[in-house]
C-alpha cells in the first residue's frame, strides 16, 4: 500500500481464516492508527481472539494481508512477529507458572538481548552485565503496573487482577511499539478496572499504540477512539464509540444488551 498514510501502524486487509470448514474470520479489514487506542468488540465466538492470533503469527491467515509499519507480516512465525515490536497479552493469562513475577517480566527482554547458551552457562562478564540490565528493565516495567513489591512472589500466589498486570508488564518489557490486550478487564473488580484504565492512558501518553479486545462495554466505550465490531467472523461496523453505539447491526448482534 504505497498510499498508506504514515499514521497507520497496522493495516489488516481482507484477512480470512477457517478452522475445519468454519470461517472464524471472513475478509476482515481494518487499520490501527499510531498512538491511538483501537478496540475490537463482538459477541462470544465472533473471532476476536482468532484475529489477535492471526496478527501475531500463532495462526497463518488463509488469505489476506497484514502490514505492520509498512512491512508484510502475514504468515511469519510468532517469535519473528514479536521481535518486530508487537507485544500481546492473553485472555487466559498464559503466564510462566514455574517462575516468579519478575522472571516473567524478564522473559519479555528476550528479543532485545543476545547472550548465547555458552556465555550464560559459563557466566561470562558480558552475560552477567546483560542479566543485570534485564533485571532492572523488568523491574521498571513492574513498577509501571504497580507490582514492584510482588517481584519475588511466585505467580501462583497472585490474585487474578495482579496476574493480568504481570502479563502486561511482560509485554511492556519487550519495549514494543504496538500492544494488543486480549480481554484485560475480564474478571477484574471495579477498582482494578479503574487502575487498568489509568495504566492504559499512561501507556498511550508514552507513545504506545494499543489494540484492545474486550467484552466489558463501558470500559471499551470510555477508552477507545475507534471501535471495530466483529460478528461471526465478519466485520459488521467500524467507527467512533458514538457511531458504533447507534449502529443497527451492532445493536442486533448484541440483542438485548445495553451498549
Amino acid at each position: 500500500m504505497a498510499s498508506q498514510p504514515d499514521s497507520v501502524l497496522l493495516d489488516v486487509q481482507n484477512v480470512s481464516r477457517s478452522f475445519a470448514g468454519i470461517r472464524a474470520l471472513n475478509l476482515v479489514s481494518f487499520s490501527v492508527k499510531r498512538k491511538k487506542i483501537t478496540a475490537v468488540i463482538g459477541p462470544n465466538g465472533a473471532g476476536k481472539s482468532t484475529l489477535i492470533n492471526v496478527i501475531t503469527g500463532v495462526y497463518i491467515p488463509d488469505s489476506g494481508g497484514i502490514h505492520f509499519g509498512g512491512s508484510d507480516i502475514a504468515g511469519l512465525p510468532a517469535h519473528i512477529v514479536a521481535s518486530k515490536g508487537i507485544a500481546r497479552t492473553f485472555q487466559l493469562e498464559e503466564l510462566f507458572s514455574s517462575m516468579t513475577v519478575i522472571e516473567n517480566a524478564m522473559t519479555g527482554c528476550h528479543g532485545k538481548t543476545g547472550s548465547g547458551m555458552l556465555a550464560c552457562g559459563f557466566a561470562l562478564p558480558s552475560a552477567r552485565r546483560e542479566e543485570k540490565r534485564i533485571r532492572e528493565e523488568a523491574m521498571e516495567c513492574l513498577a509501571m503496573v504497580g507490582l514492584e513489591e510482588k517481584a519475588l512472589e511466585p505467580i501462583s500466589r497472585l490474585p487474578l487482577g495482579e496476574r493480568k498486570l504481570v502479563g502486561i508488564a511482560r509485554a511492556l518489557s519487550m519495549k514494543p511499539g504496538f500492544l494488543m490486550l486480549d480481554e484485560p478487564a475480564g474478571g477484574l473488580a471495579g477498582h482494578e478496572v479503574e487502575r487498568l484504565v489509568k495504566l492504559i492512558h499512561r501507556l498511550i501518553e508514552q507513545g504506545l499504540t494499543i489494540l484492545l479486545v474486550e467484552h466489558n462495554m463501558p470500559f471499551v466505550m470510555s477508552l477507545s477512539e475507534k471501535i471495530v465490531v466483529l460478528d461471526a467472523g465478519v466485520k459488521i461496523a467500524e467507527g467512533t464509540p458514538e457511531e458504533v453505539k447507534n449502529d443497527e447491526r451492532v445493536i442486533k448482534a448484541y440483542l438485548g444488551q445495553e451498549l
Partner: peptide
C-alpha cells in the same frame, strides 16, 4: 548459571507455555 539466565528462562518458558514463549520473541 544457564537456568538463571535468559537462556534458562527461555527454556522454562517454552515448557510452561509455548504460545506465550513465542509471543516474547523466543524461538521455541
Amino acid at each position: 548459571n544457564m537456568m538463571n539466565s535468559r537462556v534458562g528462562r527461555a527454556i522454562k518458558a517454552l515448557h510452561d507455555s509455548e504460545v506465550a514463549a513465542s509471543s516474547v520473541a523466543i524461538n521455541v
